[in-house]
């Protein structure tokens, strides 16, 4: 599976549900885009503490590569590690959001877009790569994710991930979230 194929699926679809390893979302949609075949490592520089992977890469695989270099993920993933990094990103958690440095996504119009990067500090443009954490696959198809990793010695600083627990709905927030959905997916194909 390559990124152009994902792009084509999106361009062709009227409605599309993005799924990962199907560990979190029980899909009922007729047209699904399974991102789990889009897997693998793009870049890993242990002395930069940064890793870039394709969204379908499983958490277990990431952990084993990190283990090899004496490093760990700075967040935990709920349920089980057979989930993909893309799935964990879509479900979202504050700690995962903290670790994210950049993403490559395809929006609802099939545009391939890159936000953020592979460096710790980057304030060019709005922080879209953190905005989209927790977007449940309804705004974009996340293809590649860069995130921060930690040396093993800092394992005690990693907090167990909590589920975002504040029901923050308000009219203003709803209007903004609706507006943002329209920005990334104006035709409303991601369900």
């Amino acid at each position: 599976m390559n990124i152009e194929r994902i792009q084509q699926r999106i361009l062709d679809a009227e409605k599309l549900q993005i799924i990962g390893n199907n560990s979190q979302l029980k899909s009922t949609a007729s047209n699904t885009l399974d991102m789990s075949p889009y897997a693998g490592f793009i870049g890993y520089h242990p002395d930069e503490l940064v890793m870039t992977v394709k969204a379908g890469t499983r958490i277990t695989e990431i952990k084993s590569i990190l283990e090899h270099k004496g490093q760990i993920l700075p967040f935990t993933v709920q349920h089980n590690d057979s989930a993909t990094i893309g799935g964990a990103y879509s479900i979202g958690s504050p700690e995962l959001r903290d670790a994210v440095l950049g993403v490559k996504v395809i929006d609802g119009q099939g545009q391939i877009l890159t936000f953020g990067g592979q460096v710790m500090k980057n304030v060019a443009g709005y922080d879209v790569s953190r905005l989209l954490v927790g977007s449940k696959g309804r705004l974009v198809a996340v293809c590649e994710i860069s995130f921060r990793v930690l040396p093993k010695a800092y394992a005690n600083t990693v907090k167990t991930t909590i589920t975002p627990n504040i029901d923050s709905q308000s009219q203003v927030r709803e209007r903004i979230e609706y507006g943002l959905k329209k920005v990334f997916d104006p035709k409303g194909i991601f369900i």
Binding site: G92, R97, L131, G134, I166, R173
Partner: peptide
């Protein structure tokens, strides 16, 4: 809030 469900508006 950091722990809001939904999009990362605080990060934005």
């Amino acid at each position: 809030h950091r722990n809001d469900s939904g999009l990362g508006l605080l990060a934005l």
